[in-house]
Computed example of a mutant assay.
Amino acid sequence: MELVAASKMRGAIVRMNNVRPYVEYANKIIKNVVAASIDYPNPYLFQRDKKRVGYIVTSTDRGLCGGLNINLFKHMLKDIKKHLENRVEVDVCVIGLKAETFFRKIKDVNVVATASYVEKDKEASIRMIGGAVQVMLDKFKAGEIDRLYLNSNQFVSTIKQQPRQQTLLPIDDIFTESEQEANRKEASNGHWDYIYERDIEEVLNALCLRYIEAQVRGAVLENAACEQAARMLAMKNATDNAGDIIDQLNLDYNKVRQAMITQELAEICSGAAAV
Rank of each mutant, 00 (worst) to 15 (best):
G66Y: 01
Y194W: 14
A234L: 02
I145Q: 10
V156D: 06
A266T: 07
R210C: 14
T114C: 05
V111D: 01
L233P: 02
V216I: 10
K82A: 13
E123Q: 06
I29V: 15
G131K: 04
D173A: 13
F140E: 13
N183S: 14
Y22H: 15
E197Y: 10
V90P: 00
I212D: 09
A124V: 10
S116A: 08
N205L: 05
G131S: 08
V23Y: 01
K105V: 03
W192E: 08
Y149E: 03
I268N: 09
I30P: 02
C269R: 02
M9T: 11
Q166E: 13
L68P: 00
P170W: 08
G63N: 09
Q215H: 10
Y55W: 07
N250A: 13
A36V: 02
E119S: 09
L249Y: 12
R15I: 12
C208V: 13
F155M: 00
L249N: 13
T262C: 04
C65A: 07
Q263K: 12
L45M: 11
N110V: 00
V133W: 02
K50A: 10
A132E: 06
D240V: 05
G63C: 03
W192M: 07
A26N: 11
G243Q: 14
I268G: 01
T176P: 02
L45E: 01
V111G: 02
N110T: 01
R217T: 13
D244L: 15
A259R: 08
K31V: 03
Q258W: 09
V57I: 15
K81S: 13
Q165V: 06
L148N: 06
I174P: 02
D79R: 12
V135C: 04
S178Q: 13
D199E: 12
D61E: 07
V57E: 01
R210F: 07
T101E: 15
V57T: 10
T60C: 11
I126R: 04
M16Y: 10
R147W: 04
K185A: 15
K105H: 09
F103I: 12
F103K: 03
F103G: 02
A274C: 11
S152L: 08
V133M: 00
Q248K: 11
K160I: 10
D244K: 14
A12P: 06
F46T: 09
C208E: 11
S37C: 04
L72I: 01
L265F: 05
E197G: 09
K107V: 09
Y44F: 12
K236A: 13
E85F: 09
P170K: 05
E181A: 15
Q248P: 07
I159F: 13
A230E: 06
D247I: 09
I106M: 14
M1Y: 13
E197F: 13
K81H: 14
I245T: 11
S157R: 02
L249H: 06
A35C: 03
G243A: 08
D199A: 15
L221R: 09
N153M: 15
I159E: 14
M16N: 03
L137G: 00
I261L: 03
R127H: 05
K120T: 15
K255I: 14
F175A: 02
C226Q: 10
L221W: 12
F155H: 14
L168E: 00
